[in-house]
């Protein structure tokens, strides 16, 4: 999935007035590309990721997923885009604690009305991919942070999305677990040619990407290939 941002601005209203979070962002992410967005805290990295992920809309400008301008689509369409075309990986894993590992992975498929047997088979295959096939029936809260993030990766891939967006995927993990997670993410990208956009402040983590963008005070400052 090709992603194009054209003159994206994002302002947030606060008690102090209107705050500019993103300013004139122009970028293109080609199908199958792995990019990292780096920058200091408060630079607008996550906000940019949420604009691309249809969780928020730009104040001005356009965001295209292939040919579709998602910035003007109604919420009902954006829900469908999130469900079928985008997978999210969050820093805090954001799994549902009442569900088991496999139920968490099956959840997006269930929302997309995937047939029961197919759903279970695909979830099992995804858990094999992240080396958690033996934990399928366990409650997610019983897993370590690294394992939970692997469940989140499997969930993000559940509906075969064209794009995966990762917001500080190793931010809550120790160095060893973080490295393991990045290897899983990297191998998925290599094998499945999914477009991958990752926000991180860690240069080591960012080095897995094909291209790194630096964001500072809401502006795209530089690009490293």
């Amino acid at each position: 999935m090709k992603i194009t941002l054209q003159g994206v601005y994002r302002y947030i209203e606060s008690e102090a007035g209107s705050i500019r979070v993103l300013e004139n962002i122009n970028m293109t992410v080609e199908q199958g590309e792995f990019i990292a967005i780096m920058g200091p805290s408060g630079s607008g990295k996550s906000t940019l990721l949420y604009q691309i992920g249809c969780l928020d809309s730009p104040s001005f400008g356009h965001i295209f997923l292939d040919e579709v301008d998602i910035s003007t689509e109604p919420e009902s369409i954006r829900e469908q885009i999130r469900l079928h075309h985008i997978g999210f990986i969050f820093q805090n894993y954001n799994l549902l604690p009442t569900l088991t590992v496999i139920e968490n992975v099956m959840l997006p498929m269930q929302l997309a009305n995937t047939f029961g047997k197919e759903r279970r088979a695909r979830a099992a295959a995804l858990l094999r991919l992240v080396n958690l096939e033996n934990k399928a029936e366990e409650k997610v809260m019983a897993l370590s942070g690294g394992q939970q993030q692997r469940v989140a990766i499997a969930r993000a891939m559940a509906n075969n999305p064209g794009t995966i967006l990762a917001d500080e995927p190793t931010g809550n993990l120790d160095g060893k677990s973080g490295k393991e997670i990045m290897e899983v993410i990297h191998s998925i990208h290599e094998n499945q040619k999914i477009t991958l956009i990752m926000v991180t402040h860690d240069p080591k983590i960012a080095s897995y990407a094909d291209k790194i963008y630096y964001l500072d005070d809401g502006k795209l400052r530089s690009t490293v290939f």
Binding site: R82, N94, L111
Partner: peptide, 16 residues
Amino acid sequence: VKEFGTLRSIGTSRFT
């Protein structure tokens, strides 16, 4: 609230 945010982020509709 966070769980509902997660559900919405993975494509659950507002109505659901």
